[in-house]
Design a protein around this nucleic acid. Structure first.
Length: 482
DNA sequence: CCTGGAGTTGTCCTA
DNA sequence: TTAGGACAACTCCAG
């Protein structure tokens, strides 16, 4: 039996490969809505998962079996009734899954069934990367350079199984388990808002491969600088595929390494692009390592002095942020991109994150849970580590005095305003000069652009200078009184 | 064991 | 107009 989880692919899938080389395979997926507790899948994730499973099932000739419930019971029942002696899966690293899976392993072992788990989603196992004294790294650069790059090279991807033969005609009626088809899992929402996500993304293993190929052709050449400009296509957009395991980090790593140029006059620049991109994959590893070693990362400040930080509870401000109506165009553009596509460009994630946590002084938990629900790449490790980073309470975090100015950031990183105008079309006729601070535009300019502030587009929700000073003051106080 | 430099992503003020 | 320094505190690590 091969239990698919967050490895929804055929290629470079260690569990599937080992299972297939040993025997005929029964591929299954279990929707577990019992064990995650506080971190049940978000809505956008469910949509992505639905289509990803659909593609995977196609690749498996429609042989994928779907179940819903507690995996411990389902796996035990299946193995017993179908006479299965070996179960294969690739590891997941969220604390609740580690807990669940080791319990499952123990139970299966008591039943005389062998469970084989492999690493299918990280380049380095979190427990293998440690400082000389055995404790985990808390700073990215030494983690990545010394702990990862200097330790071992990432495993090379393996080909799809040569022979993939399935257990024929599985008769599930001899089990006590209700059977489902994909639609019965009810991953899609009641009304059709998921169409936006479907229209914006090709989902599945082949789509992941295509995305990587076009990134290698177009994005990586110019990644280092281009990655900062949300209107340009330099970022890889591989995050969701990686999260669901439609592509492995090993495949990406070696494909990117393989594109290193040695005999071109631009090779210096190009190799910087490659290093910068690979270090982003390194950040993914760092986040997973942090979550592994600090399982409270999603809920507790890594730096406990932040426990007394005076976060503001303000539902109105939070809703303005969520709905993209803060009155700061670059912030609103980002939040609307997220709502419309299930994705937000990395540069803009930092801007909206800083705005929520520092200008509005709203708890990073609120940002974290909104992203968790709306991002197609929602990932517990990346999401919590990154929110803690922007809030300043995390590992190797942004210094407290680093407060992004949404006007400056807009002008610098969306200089011709095309990103902002795409998602905030009511401001599209406003000249560049005022696009990021429409309230500064003279009345005549606003009128010509057809904008009445407070009617077509909100007035700014807070004062940048005052809110900045308020945040700096709050941060300086927790510094003195830890 | 101690010391000192360096560390993803910024902004603001002053000279 | 622009460059440089200030804005903490702490971890990591080379020497």
């Amino acid at each position: 039996m091969c239990w698919f989880r967050q490895d929804l692919r055929i290629k470079d899938n260690i569990a599937l490969n080992t299972a297939a080389s040993d025997s005929i395979v029964l591929p299954i997926y279990i929707l577990d809505e019992i064990n995650p507790e506080r971190f049940k899948m978000g809505q956008a994730s469910r949509v992505w998962l639905h289509y990803s499973l659909k593609q995977l099932n196609k690749e498996l000739n429609g042989k994928l079996l779907f179940f819903k419930g507690n995996p411990e019971l389902i796996l035990a029942e299946l193995s017993e009734k179908l006479n299965i002696s070996e179960i294969y899966w690739n590891r997941c690293y969220e604390p609740w899954r580690i807990k669940r899976d080791s319990k499952i392993k123990e139970k299966l072992s008591n039943m005389g069934i062998k469970a084989h788990s492999s690493n299918g989603s990280l380049l380095w196992e979190p427990w293998e990367v440690a400082k000389a004294d055995g404790t985990p790294y808390r700073v990215f650069t030494p983690f990545y350079r010394k702990g990862c790059l200097n330790a071992t090279l990432p495993r090379k991807p393996i080909a799809r199984p040569k022979d993939l033969n399935f257990i024929p005609d599985t008769d599930l009626t001899i089990t006590n388990l209700p059977t489902y088809n994909l639609d019965d899992l009810n991953l899609l929402p009641e009304w059709g808002w998921d169409k936006k996500i479907k229209d914006n993304w090709d989902i599945g293993e082949q789509a992941a491969k295509n995305r990587l190929n076009s990134f290698l052709k177009e994005g990586i050449n110019g990644y280092k600088d281009g990655r900062n400009f949300p209107s340009q296509a330099y970022v890889s957009r591989l995050s969701a595929y990686l999260h669901w395991g439609e592509i492995s980090p090993n495949t990406i790593w070696h494909a990117v390494q393989g594109s290193i140029i040695t005999n071109n006059q631009n090779h210096g620049i190009q190799n910087k692009n490659i290093d910068t991109f690979l270090s982003e994959i390194g950040w993914r590893e760092f986040s997973h390592s942090l979550l592994y070693h600090f399982p409270d990362l999603p809920t507790k400040n890594l730096q406990s002095k932040f426990d007394t930080f005076p976060w503001q509870e303000n539902q109105r401000d939070l809703e303005a942020w969520q709905s993209g109506s803060t009155g700061y165009p670059i912030v609103d553009a980002g939040m609307r991109e997220l709502w419309q596509t299930g994705y937000m460009h990395n540069r803009v994630r930092m801007i909206v994150g800083s705005f929520l946590v520092k200008n509005l002084m709203i708890h990073w938990h609120c940002g974290e849970s909104w992203f968790w629900d709306t991002l197609v790449d929602a990932d517990l490790a990346n999401n919590s580590a990154s929110w803690q980073w922007i809030a300043g309470c995390g590992a190797d975090a942004a210094p407290y005095f680093r407060i992004f100015n949404p006007i400056t950031q807009g002008k610098r990183f969306d200089p011709n305003g095309s990103y902002t105008r795409q998602y905030v079309p009511e401001l599209s006729a406003l000249p560049d000069k005022y696009l990021f601070a429409p309230w500064e535009a003279p009345d005549i300019i606003l009128e010509e652009a057809g904008v009445e502030l407070g009617k077509h587009y909100p007035k700014p929700i807070c004062d940048l200078k005052l809110s900045r000073e308020r945040a700096l003051k709050a941060f300086s106080e927790i510094k003195v009184n830890p």
